[in-house]
Nucleic acid binder design. Sequence first.
RNA 1: CGGGAUGUAGCGCAGUUUGGCUAGCGCGCUUGCCUUGGGAGCAAGAGGCCGGGGGUUCGAGUCCCUCCAUCCCGACCA
Length: 572
Amino acid sequence: MRVSQLLNPTLREVPAEAEIISHKLMLRAGLIRKAAAGIYTYLPLGLRVLKKIERIVREEMDAKGGQEILLPIMQPSEPWLETGRWNVYGEEMFRLKDRHDREFCLGPTHEEIVTDLVRGEVRSYKQLPLLLYQIQNKYRDERRPRFGLMRGREFIMKDLYSFDRDEAGLEVSYQKMYDAYCRIFSRCGLTFRPVEADAGAIGGTGGTHEFMVLAESGEAAVVYCPACDYAANVEKAECKPEPVPDSPAVTPRTMVSTPGAKTIEQVSTFLKIPKTQLIKSLLCQGDDKVFLVLLRGDRELNEVKLNNALGGFISLQLASPETVYRILGCEPGFVGPVGIPKNLMVIADLEVKLMPKLVCGANQADQHYINVSPEQDFRIDREFDLRMIESGEKCPGCSVPLQEARGIEVGQVFKLGDKYSKALQATYYDESGKEQFCVMGCYGIGISRTIAAAIEQNYDQDGIIWSMAIAPYHCIIVPVNLKDAPVKEAAEQLYAQLREAGVEVVLDDRDERPGVKFKDADLVGYPLRVIIGSKSLANEQVELRQRRTGETELVDLKGLAEIIKNKVDLGL
RNA sequence: CGGGAUGUAGCGCAGUUUGGCUAGCGCGCUUGCCUUGGGAGCAAGAGGCCGGGGGUUCGAGUCCCUCCAUCCCGACCA
């Protein structure tokens, strides 16, 4: 391709809309343009990167026995009604009606439609296991799309669905995908970590792992063990209850005045009692149920754990101050578990019981109780691990202190079990002629997000640094001065040779000054750059520069095509 | 959805407070000259429903009402 003909509108300045580095660089390097919030057009170079990643994904899926299909984007409501998710998915689902008023959605995911397919086509155990995948658009009306391709309302995903005879089969499929994902992200040149995760609305009873590309801009927080291979999303990371070491003298429960002290911080300071001896009492509302959640004062509530513990709500949130007042007769700052209405369920974190004496709100303005004993002074109806893990806590595997990092979730693998096959009656007949439910797994990779993640991990002040495997082109030829006939001729010749050799190459044939071409080449991030200038050309030599290292070598023009071809094949 | 901000040429911005004639600047774009190893220089040009609608006024980019769009924080989220 000739740069003069390439639709690659690079920008000198960063559009005001971009915040994070990948978004800025993708706009500046002319890879994407915005069509609407969270909806993007891929320009030629952006699309080439996308196709490169797709190709790697296809190769690895096919290698594991995956069969590619293409499911519809527009899906009828019926299978969604059968699984109950038509109503559960909420506003995040784009919905539409046809001229007959029949309801459809733009697929946010494809469990329903693929299971609907399989229940119609699979009859026998002989057809299993079945691994079906597709690469296509997903639609989610995110409340807040952001960061360019990182969180879009339309995005491209590879999703594979496995159908097995039983749990053992699922285990095999799951492991295949887990391995394939590791290979895919390695081939894309990413530093990543599989972490234990929460299954969220996709549900399913088995395990799930998220594949996190480690980057500062990541939206997810993970903890990992530097000694063993334990790693988990903080939403999921299991917390061991820790006893509070310092226990105050045992005296009867006493109400004390704490004027204006509403937060844990304020109460702790006012009473000169460490936060570990305070109780954090949160009145929560899940759908239409209200309950009181108790945590040690210095801990944070993990809402995902809470929601899972209670069986999953459509909406779970802190109760409004009005609700708190209606139920407990005080404002949120003075809530506590002592003397509350009998029908108000109390859900405590595992650590609460380990607190010998504690301080809590008295459900009266400006009053707290001190010397409160769990179970003696208030009841605990149910106990769970409800808190957010903190970095430095001990690894559940090997007790080494955990470290914290941020990550971009580029993939997730789920064991679904029979959640969808049961709801949609996807069954097969086993050897004895008995009807059984398929055991399912689903496995997603955010292809478009992976592009953004790759940039977040590979850039410098000049622009993007692609790894060879996913670069839009392998190499760019920059003739310093096209009006210099030998330079032009050498450039054209090399361009032809490289194309002949199967190297993906662009020739910057624009009548621009060299500085402009160098800047653009760095910005776009071609891994290899050949600079043809008159001085070195006089010795039949040109410069070969590596984008990542900036390392430049003077090489003979003769045989250069082979050298470049080798570098491309070796991935540098 | 709550809070905050922004919308003026392809991009980045000024002008809006205190209404006034023909709406500016830089980059980019077009043409010519010149230049050719890290976003050169000179000259001449093109390009705007000042986000939309309504209102106030002799007069609105500027004031008022309203809608829309976009971004950030939070909430939320496979």
